[in-house]
Amino acid sequence: MKTNRTRSQERVLKLLKTQKRSLSAQDIYSKLRRCNRPLGLATVYRSLDALKQEGVVIVRTLANGESVYSCLQQDQHHMTCVKCGTSIPINECPLHDLEDKLQQSHKFKIFYHTLEFFGICDDCTLAEDIP
Rank of each mutant, 00 (worst) to 15 (best):
M1N: 10
K2G: 09
T3S: 10
T6A: 06
T6P: 03
R7C: 06
E10D: 13
K14D: 11
K14M: 05
L15N: 03
L16E: 04
L16Y: 04
K17N: 09
T18M: 07
Q19F: 01
K20L: 12
R21M: 05
L23Y: 07
L23G: 00
S24M: 09
S24K: 07
Q26C: 00
Q26K: 11
Q26T: 10
I28K: 03
I28R: 03
S30Q: 15
K31N: 08
L32D: 02
L32S: 04
R33W: 07
C35W: 06
C35L: 13
C35A: 10
N36V: 08
R37L: 08
R37C: 04
L39W: 04
L41K: 11
L41Y: 12
A42K: 15
T43E: 10
V44K: 03
V44D: 03
Y45N: 12
Y45G: 01
Y45P: 00
S47Y: 02
S47F: 06
D49E: 14
D49R: 12
D49K: 14
D49G: 05
L51Y: 02
V56E: 08
V57M: 02
I58V: 14
V59N: 07
G65I: 04
E66H: 03
V68E: 09
V68K: 11
Y69P: 00
Y69C: 02
S70F: 00
L72A: 01
Q74A: 13
H78W: 13
C81I: 03
C81S: 02
V82H: 01
T86L: 06
S87L: 02
I90R: 10
I90K: 08
I90V: 13
E92H: 06
E92W: 11
C93G: 11
C93D: 14
C93V: 01
L95Q: 06
D97C: 02
L98E: 08
E99R: 15
E99M: 07
K101R: 14
L102N: 02
Q103V: 00
Q104H: 01
S105L: 05
S105R: 03
K107E: 08
F108R: 08
F111S: 08
Y112I: 00
H113C: 04
H113L: 05
T114H: 10
E116V: 14
E116R: 14
F117S: 11
I120Q: 13
I120C: 12
C121K: 05
C124V: 09
T125W: 09
T125D: 11
L126H: 12
E128F: 13
D129M: 15
D129Q: 15
P131E: 15
